[in-house]
Design a protein around this nucleic acid. Structure first.
Lengths: 203, 203
DNA sequence: CATTCACGAGACACGCTGTCAAGTGAAAGT
DNA sequence: ACTTTCACTTGACAGCGTGTCTCGTGAATG
């Protein structure tokens, strides 16, 4: 078990440093979501040299990529995947949107910053958000097909159109328009998204 | 008519310079929407000294504020206000969303950059987008009340909830999720937004 | 013919990014 | 116990961006 020994103190402290830096970014984004954040400020907050950030993450983009993955995970992405894997597609719809809303709500400011960065400075992110969004697109197509197969779609609503509507309803932007834009709670946001999506595309 | 004389050549050329700078920003955003844009690059593209940009617009934020107002206007904001002022609230809903979608589609990349900037660097914009969004919020409340008064709301759908749903359906983000995210045409985007909103909240 | 004024040229201080060279000190291997 | 490894630090560098200011300059204006 040479590996176990290697993971003793050196590697452990390395992981700790990495975590401290990611935490610093998350903290900073929560306290000032609408302000540009510098690598220098992150390093100081984490009690680490600026060059260490570059050493560990390679670049500013690499740092934000790592933050995105970490935040998805902490916020409950695994629980979403679970909530979605149920036999009844109506339950998938309800559980999926609700789980998604609670993920976004848990780290709203961080996700807001990451989603906006992805649009504004493609170079400034590692593309973690884009990769998750690609999965989401597949998920919506899969759900729309299942709804159709279970005769759950409203007559006249094509599978593709259902997928488009689901694509909006389960998006961060739809969540944020209600949660931040309208000041609703996470539960209320989820309820409105679920019910109106069902009325729009389900029988 | 001393004023008319004043507006002869000096003031005219001043307006021309202002326009050239705004055009440079718009051009640049259309060619590279996901890249950070510097005042220096704008000035060079407009064939103008960098200090002139600061002279005319005061700051980077002032520049983007002016760009936002200009783009809304060019894209057809006045037409939207017209489309919305009709007796039947159902026509307001259809015409408003459709007009909005065509505004966004006409300058999609510029709006994308401006909306993301507004979220990411509050300091970096003059808040033109926020002001338009405040108007939009009032518009949605007004439309929801009118739909209710005309008995057009689905039984069980409260006025506030209708306003929430309209708030999403008429947003730039909903537009962009379909237009860019799903590769739909402007007409198709408008149709889907209108029809599904009606199914969700109208009887 | 003098004045006004839009605009240009260029320098300044300051902040941020990304990279690199030369350490330092504690954990790990022998 | 002695050396090696390695996570991390210090500090400097070039390059680019912002915002401000001063001093032109030439054409429209009176």
């Amino acid at each position: 078990m040479a590996r176990a020994y290697e993971l003793k103190a050196r590697a452990e402290s390395a992981a700790e440093t990495r975590r401290r830096i990611i935490d610093a970014v998350i903290d900073r984004l929560r306290k000032a979501p609408a302000e540009r954040i510098s690598v220098d400020a992150v390093a100081r907050k984490a009690g680490v040299a600026r060059s260490t950030v570059y050493l560990i993450f390679g670049s500013r983009a690499g740092l934000f990529d790592a933050v995105a993955l970490e935040v998805y995970d902490r916020a409950g992405y695994p629980r979403l995947l679970e909530a979605v894997r149920v036999p009844d597609p109506r339950d998938t719809l309800r559980g999926g949107i609700t789980a998604g809303v609670h993920i976004f709500a848990a780290y709203r400011d961080v996700f807001r910053a990451l989603y906006s960065m992805e649009e504004l400075e493609k170079e400034a992110t590692g593309g973690a958000i884009s990769r998750v969004e690609e999965n989401r697109a597949e998920g919506m197509a899969w759900l729309a097909r299942r709804l159709s197969r279970h005769k759950q779609l409203r007559p006249g609503v094509k599978i593709a159109e259902a997928a488009h509507v689901l694509w909006i309803a389960a998006s961060f932007e739809a969540f944020d328009l209600l949660y931040t834009g309208r000041g609703l709670s996470a539960d209320e946001t989820a309820r409105i998204l679920v019910e109106n999506t069902e009325r729009a595309i389900c029988r």
